[in-house]
Amino acid sequence: MPELIEKLSFYLEFPFVRYAIIVGVLVSLCSSLLGVTLVLKRYSYIGDGLSHVAFGALAIASVLKLTNNMFLILPVTIAVAILLLCTGKDSRIKGDAAVAMVSVGALAIGYLLMNIFSTSANISGDVCTTLFGSTSILTLKQEEVYLCVVLSGIVLFSFILFYNKIFSITFDENFARATGVNTTAFNLLIAVIVATIIVLAMNLVGALLVSALVVFPALSAMRVFKSFFSVTVAAATISVLCSLIGIVIAILAGTPVGSTIVAADIVIFGLFYLIGVARNGGN
């Protein structure tokens, strides 16, 4: 044990490890907050779809050799998020199919582009990194960290400011609209926030595992807690803890960061599931 702590504090000397922890905490905090809304609105899969879109955009950005690929990835993902979340609310099935279509489409085109216009010798390594975020969180540059801090700050601020509005729209969009809430504007806001979080989270766990960050903490919290507020707080706490645990284990044991974080989320979900069952008497 003392060796482990020593090893950890040795690693913490490095700025890239501190960056990883800062980004990890912020991203997991943001994604879990919106995750509650997405899960309850039956939009769990949107996160997955959008992350594939972000992957496709990333491929285009690297083909175009952009210096800062964020400027392409973020707008493209936001545009698709608005398209998916703000249309087709009257026809759930169509929306579902649209997500599936956009999701695999972007994945395929992204991989295709990366292959045709490959700039590096190790394409499958690059693709694997993007999809599973195996090392990208440990290679963050200082400006990426700043960008992440600013964007998460905006996301957190809007979430707290509009918390009650988000609740009322999530619980009953029709009631909210009928009683004068501008639901179109808030759905738009939610779509933009979700897209931003997805793009940020891609750095942390990679494109394929993003929806785990969105979905697992919310689902774990919902097993046990009974009010929207407590579910939100619990989801945020669980998510941040899992990311910290995941990053630390990944550093100490040399495992891939993204998958380790998700594994931690799964373990916690199992735990909360059991607590929920015990409480409700097997219900």
Binding site: L40, N164, F167, S168, F171, D172, F175, A176, M222, F225, K226, S227, F228, F229, V231
Partner: peptide, 10 residues
């Protein structure tokens, strides 16, 4: 998952 109070206040 919401309490009655949260819903009424919304």
């Amino acid at each position: 998952p919401a309490s009655v109070e949260e819903i009424v206040l919304s």
